[in-house]
Design a protein around this nucleic acid. Sequence first.
DNA 1: CGTATGTCAGACACACTGAAATAA
DNA 2: CTTATTTCAGTGGGTCTGACATAC
Lengths: 158, 158
Amino acid sequence: MRDHDEIRFDLGTGMPDRLRRQFSRLLGMTAAQTSRVSGRALADVGARRYHFAVLAALAEFGPASQAGLSDRTGIYRSDLVAAINELAEAGHVRREPDPEDKRRNVITMTESGAERLDELDAVLDRAGETILAPFSEAERKQLFSLLRRLDDHLAGGA
Amino acid sequence: MRDHDEIRFDLGTGMPDRLRRQFSRLLGMTAAQTSRVSGRALADVGARRYHFAVLAALAEFGPASQAGLSDRTGIYRSDLVAAINELAEAGHVRREPDPEDKRRNVITMTESGAERLDELDAVLDRAGETILAPFSEAERKQLFSLLRRLDDHLAGGA
DNA sequence: CGTATGTCAGACACACTGAAATAA
DNA sequence: CTTATTTCAGTGGGTCTGACATAC
């Protein structure tokens, strides 16, 4: 087997039992692989996850401060700075000082940003289909529901 | 809300729909939180995931080369170097040149390493119980089974 | 005054790549 | 000559912390 082989993820039967039983490891590995698939799909069009999250929030809730975007996307305020820099440089959002509160910026999505969001949405949908290919509708719902519950449990301060 | 609040993960009702529907995001967030819980539990005893994986592989399969450990744990060979450095410095493993193949090192778990593995196993079990607290046995099995299938699907080169 | 905002400048674990030296 | 092993030196996105100036 070559180094950096395509199928290096298939540990197959050689994986230690203690590792196979570890829930956090299983979840972590599937998440890493899932994130690799969708992350590369985004990278192929020059985007990152943060871009999609910010654009989605702006599309749904309209212009917002960076703190507001942080609350809605879960992205740290410090990390939003770079994400918005990138989106603004590409013309997908505008960053303007808020006249009503001079600490704030108002972030507004542009036409180009709306188109970009549609593009990224399509890219992620296609990636999601690839990822979930082996599952039926019922199974997808089940998986979603279980993960959502887990997420709520942990987000609620577990 | 203070900066770096404890419950900053609870986006609640303010999260954009497009984000909530994204499977890879849901999986990514739950994995991040799960990994945070178990990662901090490990950090509290001065360990990392890689340590546990290496020790588990050594316990189950006996002494091995670093390449062998890489195959069994999925850890890159380049990353194993540091992990084994750390384990060796703590006395949990020994790294010795293989007399039969002078390219290789033979990594052997020590007594202290076996104890360390038990410790980390207990730590991770406790963390796992916290994480999966809201789920019944049947639900845990279901979640495991779905994730395992997803993992197999993606590991198989999706 | 204390608190909120945006920004910078890092840290961290983990995943990943490329190349070198050595030995098979 | 080609392949395998170890190691080093990086990159990368994502998560996270701390501090700062500014403004409320």
